[in-house]
């Protein structure tokens, strides 16, 4: 009897917390769009954040993109050869990388590297009262810290995604070149032969959505961190876990939407 009451109490508290979280997230979302289009604009800080997100992620994206391109090509070759369709390999890689792998891999790497960094940085600023120090100096911390970081990830991750696609296709080309001695022009012509304008749009929309998600989730968790250094670790952790989870859900939704658009 007493145990049931405790369980019920825990359940109602969790439901209550769930709706509070939904409210807080929607408020954070609303504040972002309200502040993003309001003066003053901190262009220097935005460029600084784009540099932090973009330039500093380049080596990791280059390495991962190249490996993915080469590995996928190596593993896709035998089944295609069984059907005598190895000439379709560049097209297959083109579709796989540009439509899905490029944006997804880039965003997952950035969720780990950039998202956790944002969560930890803002979390640390929150628990050491640096955010309050900005507020009392009449500097809007949301505008300066959150808006610039979310805009930076939203702008930079699509660029990184296209860069990743290019590098992955280069990896793929190297394997194809060694196996079939085909030229780079032939490879890229074949790779892009089945890519349509709508595929590029789909890839761009995916990358923009993932970029926004990484910035938003990182900033939300960092900005609302509490409980000292433990809270900072938690913010960094949640920034990665939630961002990755949401990115996969967005992937399914965007793919479904574009499949529906193409079919209709």
């Amino acid at each position: 009897m007493y145990g049931d009451r405790i369980k019920k109490h825990i359940f109602t508290r969790r439901v209550d917390q769930f709706f509070r979280d939904i409210y807080d997230i929607s408020k954070f979302f609303r504040t972002f769009f309200k502040e993003a289009f309001k003066r003053p604009f901190h262009f220097n800080e935005l460029i600084n954040q784009c540099y932090e997100v973009g330039y500093r992620s380049l080596p990791l994206i280059t390495l991962t993109g190249f490996i993915i391109g080469i590995v996928f090509t190596i593993q896709s070759r035998p089944p295609l050869e069984n059907f005598g369709a190895s000439s379709w390999l560049p097209s297959l890689m083109g579709i796989a990388i540009i439509k899905s792998l490029g944006p997804l891999v880039t965003s997952l790497i950035c969720a780990g590297k950039v998202g956790s960094g944002i969560g930890a940085e803002l979390g640390s600023m929150k628990v050491t009262e640096q955010i309050e120090a900005m507020e009392v100096s009449s500097i809007h911390p949301f505008k300066y810290l959150v808006v610039n970081r979310i805009l930076a990830t939203t702008i930079t991750i699509p660029i990184l995604s296209f860069y990743c696609c290019f590098i992955a296709l280069m990896g793929s080309f190297i394997n194809v070149h060694f196996e079939e001695s085909s030229s780079i022009i032939t490879f890229y012509q074949n790779a892009f032969s089945t890519i349509t304008f709508i595929d590029i749009i789909e890839s761009t929309i995916k990358a923009v959505t993932y970029g926004f998600t990484i910035g938003f989730v990182g900033c939300y968790n960092g900005y609302n961190a509490s409980q000292g250094t433990r809270g900072v670790g938690r913010a960094a952790n949640l920034a990665v876990v939630y961002a990755m989870f949401i990115i996969f859900i967005e992937e399914i939704l965007i793919v479904q939407i574009f499949t529906w658009i193409i079919n209709s």
Binding site: S124, M125, T128, E129, Q130, E132, A133, V136
Partner: peptide, 11 residues
């Protein structure tokens, strides 16, 4: 406002 922790910007 002078904070207890000084709250200097780390970066």
């Amino acid at each position: 406002f002078s904070f207890q922790s000084s709250a200097l910007y780390d970066g």
